[in-house]
Design a protein around this nucleic acid. Structure first.
Lengths: 240, 240
DNA sequence: CGAGATGTTGAGCTGACTCAACGGGAGTGG
DNA sequence: CCACTCCCGTTGAGTCAGCTCAACATCTCG
């Protein structure tokens, strides 16, 4: 149960110790990645899936004019690239944000495993659909909310997701992300990110410290964010 | 082969006449929906999947402050709600745009079918991943591009998707969408949508007529849109 | 201890918004 | 067949959130 994926999927019903064991055994072949390194690049063809064990990563796309969009944050327990089961090539890249540790799992191992443990197959599917739901909510966020609300929304989401894998304490969690990267996530300039952060700090909602974020009043932040956690499809055992 | 889903999946390899037959047989139980009606609403629990046979629909979310975001367009051949295999409740709604016709397929039929025809299972999975890829590209679009480019990008995408199911002729296809709905799709006000459309018309790129869009110069529009179709993962047999 | 990356501040600009009004077409009922 | 109405599209004018450009400060790490 040291495994963050197990932890995440355990919030689903029908998850036997057997299933959990099978999952834990996946994480033999691990290695470390330095901050800022790409795990996978656009156009790559890979024979293995990466499971993020420690640290953060992001999916992103570079545009021809030099702009960049971060499409998703990956935190411990997230699978980086289930796409390779179907697509020939990745249509986006994945990069480590802080230093990170991943397990490399051969395609075939996943296929065998899901054959043998239906609860796992269902877990992976569930997880893929949650990722999709998050992506939809990000679209809503960027398209409809102003920059302040948008950022508040992102923080609420990441807080809940970090809670789910037990990586948040008292509203504090790692957020190994520069202001520029926040901008590339939310579709605003880094300068404006800075101003929004200052406002949130001034209002006592958050504070930041060495790439850690502390949310002082989760309820207030959720209100400011128009945040409704249902899209995360967290089941049963979740905080607040 | 009268079936748009068959048409779409046929662009995948390894698709036998048997598979196609199985698909065609799904479309027995069809019915019509009037424009503007919801097929599925947030919170619904459904025992069947809807396959769109004719007309357009959209996924959307309503926000507490009355704003609305359109998350995806569904065109003939698209499955409306594969989510129900995993999630208890829909986290968004689906609405017919023009008048539409759908087939209602019981969950269990899909499950049996994919057991029996692995090529179909793979086809559905492929299709789900393409939807996800499109959703990611919409995020890029809304977050990074100005309103003109954004709209051009949407038109390019819809043109290609309509081509894929053979519903576009000479750059002309149905677009049963009001300017307000375009705004809700792209995150801009309907007034601004109007101005952008006028500019595109003035530049001779497009014209609109009774809910039909004509693209006069696809290449020029793709250039204006910074459009790179790879994210659609159209295989082999596709136009231009 | 130097240098590049990251964060902060100020000032002016602009793409898209708001508000407000008007026009035209498609359906409806008399 | 016409009048009415409602929805949709169009136009104009003023405003503002967030952008650009340009410094400067601070931090991290080799």
């Amino acid at each position: 149960m040291s495994n963050p994926l197990t932890q995440k999927l355990a919030s689903l019903a029908n998850f036997s110790p057997d299933d959990a064991d099978a999952l834990d055994r996946l994480c033999r072949n691990t290695f470390d990645i330095r901050a800022g390194r790409d795990l996978i690049r656009v156009g790559d063809r890979s024979e293995q899936v990466f499971l993020l064990l420690d640290g953060w990563a992001c999916r992103y796309k570079d545009l021809p004019d030099g702009k960049r969009q971060i499409l998703a944050y990956l935190i411990p327990g997230d699978l980086c690239d289930p796409h390779i089961f179907i697509f020939e090539e990745m249509d986006h890249s994945i990069r480590a944000l802080g230093d990170a540790r991943v397990a490399a799992i051969p395609k075939q191992v996943i296929l065998d495993l899901t054959d043998r443990y239906p609860a796992l197959a269902r877990g992976f599917w569930w997880s893929a659909l949650v990722d999709e739901a998050i992506s939809r909510e990000w679209l809503v966020n960027v398209a409809q909310r102003d920059s302040y609300t948008r950022m508040a929304h992102l923080f609420c989401e990441m807080w809940l997701r970090m809670c789910q894998v037990d990586l948040a304490r008292d509203g504090t969690f790692d957020l190994p992300v520069t202001q520029e990267q926040l901008g590339d996530t939310l579709g605003i300039t880094p300068i404006h990110v800075n101003r929004v952060l200052q406002r949130m700090r001034a209002e006592g909602l958050i504070s930041t410290n060495r790439r850690q974020l502390t949310i002082h009043d989760v309820d207030a932040l959720q209100d400011a964010a128009e945040f409704d956690p249902r899209y995360l499809h967290l089941d049963a055992r979740t905080p607040a």
